[in-house]
Computed example of a mutant assay.
Amino acid sequence: MTYTVNCSILLTELPLLERPAAAKAAGFDAVEFWWPFTASVPADAELTRFEQAITDAGVQLTGLNFNAGDMPGGDRGLVSWMGRSSEFKDNIDVVAGIGGRLGCRSFNALYGNRQDGQTPEAQDELAVQNLAAAAEGVARIGGTVLLEPVSGAPRYPLLTAEDAVRVISRVKEQTGAANIKLLADFYHLSVNGDDVAAVIEKHAKDFGHIQIADNPGRGAPGTGELPLGEWIARSRQLGYEGHIGLEYKAPAETAFAWAIRQRIAQ
Rank of each mutant, 00 (worst) to 15 (best):
M1V: 15
T2I: 08
T4M: 11
N6V: 07
L10H: 08
P15W: 15
L17D: 06
E18N: 07
A22R: 10
A23K: 03
A25M: 04
A25T: 05
A26R: 06
G27Q: 02
G27F: 11
E32G: 07
P36F: 14
S40C: 15
D44H: 07
A45L: 10
A45G: 02
E46S: 13
F50D: 03
T55R: 12
D56A: 15
D56G: 00
A57N: 05
G58Y: 14
V59Y: 00
V59A: 07
T62A: 04
G63Y: 03
F66C: 04
A68W: 04
A68D: 03
D70F: 08
P72G: 06
G73E: 12
D75C: 07
D75L: 12
R76P: 05
G77I: 04
V79F: 08
M82C: 14
S86H: 10
S86K: 13
E87W: 09
F88M: 13
I92K: 02
G97W: 15
L102G: 05
G103M: 14
C104R: 04
C104N: 10
A109H: 04
L110G: 00
L110T: 03
G112C: 08
T119F: 08
T119A: 10
A122M: 15
A122V: 13
L126Q: 14
L131D: 01
A134T: 10
A135Q: 12
E136A: 15
A139K: 13
I141H: 06
T144N: 06
S151Y: 10
A153R: 10
Y156S: 05
E162I: 12
V165A: 02
R166Y: 11
V171P: 11
K172F: 09
G176Y: 13
A178N: 01
N179R: 09
K181A: 15
D185P: 10
D185I: 09
H188T: 02
V191H: 00
N192D: 08
G193F: 12
D195H: 09
A197K: 10
A198K: 15
D206F: 09
F207E: 05
F207L: 01
H209G: 00
I210D: 02
Q211K: 02
Q211H: 14
Q211N: 08
A213L: 07
A213H: 09
N215L: 09
R218F: 06
G219T: 11
G219A: 04
P221I: 03
E225M: 07
W231D: 00
A233E: 08
R234W: 05
Y240R: 02
G242H: 01
G242F: 00
I244L: 00
E247N: 03
A252D: 01
E253H: 12
T254C: 07
A255P: 13
A257F: 01
A257M: 06
W258P: 04
I260N: 02
R261S: 08
R261L: 12
A265G: 01
A265V: 01
Q266L: 12
